[in-house]
């Protein structure tokens, strides 16, 4: 009886020491989970999820302060990727934050722009080129379509244009299987 108690206590002590040593020796700075979650988000930095940017949202998901279905630009693909990563149930996109829509880029009507730089300050990825009283223009390749530049513009000269498909961006669609015994199409 005594030997078993002593033996178990000794084992517990040994394992405790090993774990303590590992916790110090192999400590990882920062939270890698947040990095992994952030890698799945589309980096639009639009704030539709209710957080000021993608990284704060990633941190909220990691600390379970937010659900994984808050991101409209990421859409279903992101929800499923996050569900996979975190081993949580995929939920339908939260309609309060907006719907999944086509990709857009901003466009400044140069006839109307007054060069006030308010949009430049609003853009989270610095995709607007310009300076005070100089013409402002959107750098198309950097624009994420977050439309944070629309509200600040006092003359309403920015509009969001749908990115049209062309020969280079077109991709083969998922084959429709009108099969006899096939399972339902997986809606990812």
């Amino acid at each position: 009886m005594l030997t078993s108690i002593l033996a178990l206590s000794a084992l517990a002590l040994v394992f405790g020491l090993i774990l303590g040593f590992a916790a110090i020796r192999f400590k990882v700075e920062g939270d890698p989970l947040v990095e992994q979650i952030d890698a799945q988000l589309p980096q639009t930095q639009c704030g539709q999820c209710g957080f000021p940017g993608c990284r704060p949202y990633a941190e909220a998901i990691a600390s379970e302060d937010a659900e994984i279905n808050q991101c409209p630009p990421g859409g279903e693909a992101t929800i499923y990727a996050l569900a996979d990563l975190l081993d949580r149930e995929p939920l339908p996109l939260n309609p309060d934050n907006g719907a999944e829509s086509v990709k857009t880029v901003a466009f400044i009507d140069e006839q109307t722009c007054i060069g006030c730089t308010l949009c430049i300050q609003a853009c989270p990825v610095d995709a607007i080129l310009g300076a005070a009283k100089q013409m402002h223009t959107i750098i198309e390749s950097e624009c994420t379509g977050c439309d944070l530049c629309l509200p600040p513009c006092p003359v309403d000269c920015i509009e969001m244009i749908e990115i049209k498909e062309d020969m280079l961006t077109w991709k083969w669609p998922y084959p429709q299987e009108p099969a006899a015994n096939s399972q339902q199409e997986i809606s990812t």
Partner: peptide, 16 residues
């Protein structure tokens, strides 16, 4: 392509 784009957007955002 989207991953590349989002990585770039993240870089720009963080630089900002």
């Amino acid at each position: 392509q989207e991953q590349k784009k989002s990585d770039q957007a993240r870089e720009r955002h963080e630089f900002r």
